[in-house]
Nucleic acid binder design. Structure first.
Lengths: 98, 98
DNA sequence: TCAATATGTCACCGTTCGATGACCTACCCA
DNA sequence: TGGGTAGGTCATCGAACGGTGACATATTGA
């Protein structure tokens, strides 16, 4: 599953929790956070701490991986010339919400 | 690359930034955060906001994915009986640093 | 060597975090 | 009908956030 936003992450966490038949309180206890935190994160809270997120993911028995986008043919072609890639990245990132 | 801790994440971000020939200030500007934030995150700050992390990752042209650990035989076997899996998860999570 | 560039540190500040505990729905099922 | 369970909300609080700007300390290249 691909994660782009905190909402994606929240949905993934909720799905996985339910798959394991855990309620919010069980998960909260195992991760060492409050039940409220679980609720907020599952709703996609963008300011949740990365450390707690990572612990939650580990408790859920899930693996988080980071890959360069060199997999698809187009992306591989682009990355073959790093400078061009930088330009594309800058363009995509321009005018992002602060 | 596998991410288990905020330190893993920080290293990955720094590596990727250098690969793209960006200095901390460039990256900070593109993500919309302060240079100090980049410094902290690259050092593995565990309380950094997930939303900012995700934006950083996108600017760096990297993909974050979440996979269940159902790939190896042992894990597949375990997940076939959710209740047993929960016990293993609890045991692994016990006595985690708060 | 020197100066430019990159990186790291500091104190200050307003904002938001996450924990807590109480309360409120909904839902199920006996 | 009632009670149990799961999920969501609220107010409060101390702690830490992230931004800012100035100041150190590498690191690099001429």
């Amino acid at each position: 599953m691909l994660l782009r936003t905190p909402t994606d992450l929240g949905s993934a966490i909720r799905d996985r929790r339910r798959r394991l038949n855990l309620d919010q309180e069980d998960l909260a206890n195992q991760v060492g956070v409050s039940r409220k935190w679980i609720i907020d994160v599952e709703k996609g809270k963008p300011r949740a701490e990365i450390g707690l997120i990572l612990r939650t993911i580990e408790v859920l028995g899930v693996r988080l991986s980071l890959d360069t986008n060199e997999m698809t043919p187009e992306e591989t072609a682009t990355l073959a010339v790093p400078v061009a890639d930088i330009d594309r990245i800058i363009e995509r990132a321009r005018d992002k919400p602060a």
